[in-house]
Design a protein around this nucleic acid. Structure first.
Length: 624
DNA sequence: ATAGGGTTAG
């Protein structure tokens, strides 16, 4: 961009400067543009509209944000060509106030003696409207495009589909898409695909994907991320497999989505596979890719690996810090989570609401009451972040479990948003733990009223009565539960082995190695009994005899997964289990004993946190 | 001379 300046005749100089622009298709820095501008001023060529328009073009290509400089350049052009105006519109569309593009467009129309809009104009304007989610304005741009005969050009059509998608008007995207089936290219298809994904219509997206004449890596990424965003993780991974089978290379966006799916499912082997693919393809470790990897390792139980990656990240943004802090919190490493929070603020970054969910979650899992109170106050007072349901959830859990049940109840009373059932259930759990019968009774009945088909509320209330030895009430609540025909939350545990996912439910006999698994359960039983274990059946509340209760516990899904893990992993290997519900007290005890008796490290991710069982102890210190 | 689509945290 920058060449040595030698005094020359005006015409030659002009040519020389002109050549600076045409050889650069890649974005140049604002600094380089300013240098070129300086040279133009020195050469006395500021009246050259073409040159000035090229400067604007470079600015429009660079990723910068403020538009003051580009606007002053634009204003210095007395008769702006459509090329100059288009580039100014583009500068605005990339700035923090994309709506300025529209103002420029209307002034362009007023001064239409200089230039008429063209196809480029409408694509840039629609980009601005997408950025601003300005539905009404964009619809007017659509009308203008029709009026100027630009609406049928494929670039404009694609921009229209994307624009309506950005405004969540999936129907309008579809209408533009259907409008002219002949004028479609791969971007048209991909835009429609993305519109269905954005609208949550993943099955329609899949239809588009299956129908499209060609697919590129963006088509694959879009449909995979569509599954992942809509919580259809298995299908997302299945699609990723299909993509690889077709010989398609993954890129950053694909990797990030697939890593997120691996993380959410807790599939370490799969996450490692993606990591190795990323490395063998030598994809650059960008902030988002690095962050996705850190999150994946944390959610798959390898917090050490997460920390290592985090410490070696060339660049971090708030997402990176958030996944690290939340990861540490989920592993019960409260002190480190809080240290990271302090480091993040020392680095001059501004914590987000999610950051505080991590921080408060760390406090609640470790029972750090005064720290929790401090950070909750800091969040509202210093950072002006309004607490959301999840923040209250952490606080109620923290206070409630630590025994400050009344303070937790008071916090709920003072909330500005109406508390949701999950929050009440958290407080109910605390009531049960600390024997607050009266409050528990009140909340339990409230919850049953709010959510009569959820069996957990009845179970909790019944166990509060059981703790108070109010047996008649226990029977009454259980009968009520049966009468209301409640749904039992389906508990499952999964374990990965040799690239396959094995999912178990309680009492499962579906697995092909079921026979061996139940034999292993017997072995486990014998060996832990030798170590002095006796079952604790308090978590089983069905109307069955003691012996049956013992059996019900013995066949909890994580026991089956653990038995299977002992069968298929090598001596001394770590066993990793993911379950959707919280681990029950008895299974927690058994896991500790197994870790000692069998000399295995067992890592369980339950519905709320990680438990690392090693040599008879758990990382949660039995506080969960 | 200027144009388009996909990415992560509770």
């Amino acid at each position: 961009m920058v060449v040595a300046y030698k005094p020359q005749k005006a015409g030659t100089k002009s040519l020389l400067l002109f050549s600076l622009f045409s050889q650069h298709s890649k974005p140049v820095s604002v600094k380089q543009t300013k240098q070129a501008h300086a040279r133009i001023i020195v050469s006395g060529l500021t009246a050259n509209t073409q040159l000035m328009a090229h400067l604007l073009c470079s600015l429009a290509l660079s990723s910068s944000t403020p538009f003051h400089y580009s606007l002053s350049l634009y204003h210095s052009i007395t008769r702006p060509t459509v090329f100059a105006s288009n580039n100014m519109i583009r500068c605005f569309s990339k700035s923090h106030s994309p709506r300025h593009s529209l103002l420029l467009y209307s002034s362009m129309l007023r001064r239409s003696c200089y230039s008429q809009p063209n196809n480029h104009t409408f694509t840039f304007l629609l980009q601005a409207c997408s950025e601003a989610s300005a539905l009404c304005e964009g619809a007017q741009v659509h009308a203008q495009a029709l009026k100027h005969g630009s609406a049928d050009f494929v670039f404009v059509r694609n921009a229209l589909i994307h624009f309506y998608c950005s405004c969540s008007s999936t129907e309008c995207s579809k209408r533009v898409f259907d409008d002219n089936a002949r004028s479609r290219d791969i971007v048209t298809w991909n835009s429609m695909l993305a519109a269905f994904v954005r609208g949550g219509q993943i099955d329609n997206a899949r239809k588009v994907f299956d129908e499209m004449p060609q697919r590129d890596v963006i088509s694959w990424s879009t449909v995979i991320s569509g599954y992942v965003q809509n919580g259809r993780l298995e299908e997302g991974l299945e699609c990723f497999k299909e993509m690889r089978d077709k010989g398609m290379r993954l890129n950053e966006a694909t990797s990030v989505s697939v890593l997120s799916a691996s993380a959410q499912m807790g599939l370490l082997e799969h996450g490692r596979l993606v990591h190795s693919l990323v490395e063998s393809l030598k994809l650059p470790l960008t902030v988002s890719l690095g962050t996705a990897l850190i999150d994946m390792y944390a959610k798959c139980g390898c917090i050490e690996q997460s920390k290592h990656l985090f410490d070696n990240m060339p660049l971090r943004d708030i997402w990176t810090w958030n996944v690290m802090i939340c990861g540490l919190a989920s592993h019960g490493l409260a002190k480190e989570a809080l240290e990271h929070f302090e480091r993040l603020t020392n680095d001059g970054l501004c914590p987000a609401n999610v950051t505080f969910i991590g921080v408060l979650g760390a406090c609640s899992r470790a029972g750090l009451v005064s720290e929790g109170r401090h950070y909750f106050k800091l969040m509202t007072d210093k950072y002006g972040i309004q607490p959301e349901m999840e923040h209250y959830g952490c606080m109620v859990d923290l206070l409630g479990r630590a025994g400050f049940v009344d303070e937790a109840a008071e916090m709920i009373d003072k909330m500005t948003v109406p508390p949701d059932p999950v929050l009440w259930a958290t407080l109910l759990g605390a009531c049960k733990m600390h024997g607050s019968i009266e409050l528990g009774e009140k909340i339990g009945n409230k919850l049953i009223q709010l959510d009569p088909t959820h069996d957990g509320h009845y179970v909790q209330l019944a166990s509060i009565y059981a703790k108070a030895k109010k047996w008649e009430d226990v029977v009454r609540v259980r009968r009520l539960m049966v009468a209301k025909n409640t749904n039992k939350a389906a508990g499952w545990s999964l374990i990965e082995a040799q690239g396959k996912v094995h999912k178990f439910v309680a009492g499962d006999r579906e697995h092909e190695r079921s026979h061996e698994i139940y034999k292993m359960l017997e072995t486990i039983e014998t060996r832990i009994a030798e170590a002095g274990y006796s079952p604790n059946v308090s978590s089983v509340l069905h109307d069955i005899g003691e012996e049956e209760k013992e059996n019900a516990i013995k066949e909890h899904s994580e026991r089956l997964a653990m038995a299977f893990g002992l069968l298929v992993t090598g001596d001394g290997d770590c066993i990793r289990i993911v379950k959707n519900l919280r681990v029950c007290e008895d299974c927690h005890e058994v896991s500790k004993i197994i870790s000692k008796v069998f000399g295995r490290e067992i890592i369980v991710r339950d519905g709320s946190r990680f438990h690392h069982f090693k040599e008879g102890k758990c990382s949660c210190h039995d506080y969960w």
